[in-house]
Simulated assay, not measured.
Amino acid sequence: MKRSFFLPVLIAGLAAAASFSGSLEIQVRGVYSGSAGGFELQPVYAGSLLFSESWGDFYLDSALFPGWNLATRELWAGISKLELGYDAGSLAAGIGAAPETLTLMRLLPPFSLTAPRTDFAPGLWGGWLELSAAPSGRLRLALRSVAGTATGVLRLDGGVLAADYRLSAVYGPAPAPAAFGVGLSATLADWLVYGEVWGLLRESDLWRGALGVSRYLAGGLLAVEAAYAASPSLAAAYSWQPAADWSADALARLTLPQGAPAVYDVSARLTYAGGPGDVTLGLGLSSGGAGVVWLPSLTARVYY
């Protein structure tokens, strides 16, 4: 019997033995390309292992999202958070792996310390310290491993007048990035307006920027963003829950590379969540070097 049969059983068994919470997921992805001349199925086993424990002001957090693509033989540990920390309100610190969030954007981040993923936020190894003091806001200092290099991160979050701001700076020896950014967000009537500008010290394009708006519309949440990061991009997303057990979401993105055809991708998902799990039916469409590619998917997930 193939070893792949035992992977979801092993994940569930380890989770139960350790009294973790999380999920076990089996996904079947389809890839159809007319120019490539065929249809390919990609079964994927994935899961999530979540654990949190505290002892006074000290805590241990873990969020792991392991997976295996049987078609490509890609195997990933999916470490989003594995951290030992201390939080006393005005003073907090941690060591281990965790995402380092710098951007305010949700669909088109112009700058990130990790490659974007849709299944989880990748964690970076290192440590951090946070200090909170009014009226200056909250200061975060971190030392993370980026591209195998120790990289310093500074972030200051606060408010001025009716807006919230975020000031960020990143520096590490090459190939780690060296950049600084300024972000602002404010509520105007029913709209949340947010944007940011980044300066890059080692890139040919010295600046990147993005602007976004979001609001509740027709019973759902709408977000629209425009960004420039080497090329201009535009994205829109809408999520809607028509009933207690049903939800739907859609995403469309368009990128206009300089001197090349436009690249776009569109996707929609319908999810039924009932009992101990949920089922999601998805359909995507994207363009690129292989022409138009259709991306259907079916996902079944059980929570424990």
Rank of each mutant, 00 (worst) to 15 (best):
A93V: 12
A174V: 10
W294L: 15
I26E: 14
Y59K: 06
V160G: 12
I11H: 09
R202S: 11
Y194L: 02
L10M: 12
R269V: 14
Y238H: 09
G291N: 01
E225R: 07
G67P: 02
L295Y: 03
G137Q: 02
D265Q: 12
Y45F: 09
V292M: 07
L75C: 06
M1S: 13
S132G: 10
L211Y: 02
Y32N: 07
T151H: 00
L154D: 02
G212N: 05
W76D: 09
L64F: 13
A230D: 15
G284Y: 01
V224E: 06
F180L: 09
R215M: 11
A17K: 10
A98Q: 12
G38W: 00
G22Q: 01
A169M: 03
L217H: 10
E53A: 14
T255C: 03
L75A: 13
R155F: 00
K2R: 13
A237T: 14
R144D: 02
A223L: 05
T101Y: 04
V279Q: 08
P175R: 07
Y171P: 01
I11A: 12
L217P: 08
Y216S: 15
P276M: 09
L108Q: 01
L217Y: 09
F111Y: 04
S286Y: 02
G89A: 06
G220I: 06
L24I: 10
P135R: 06
G94Y: 02
L82K: 11
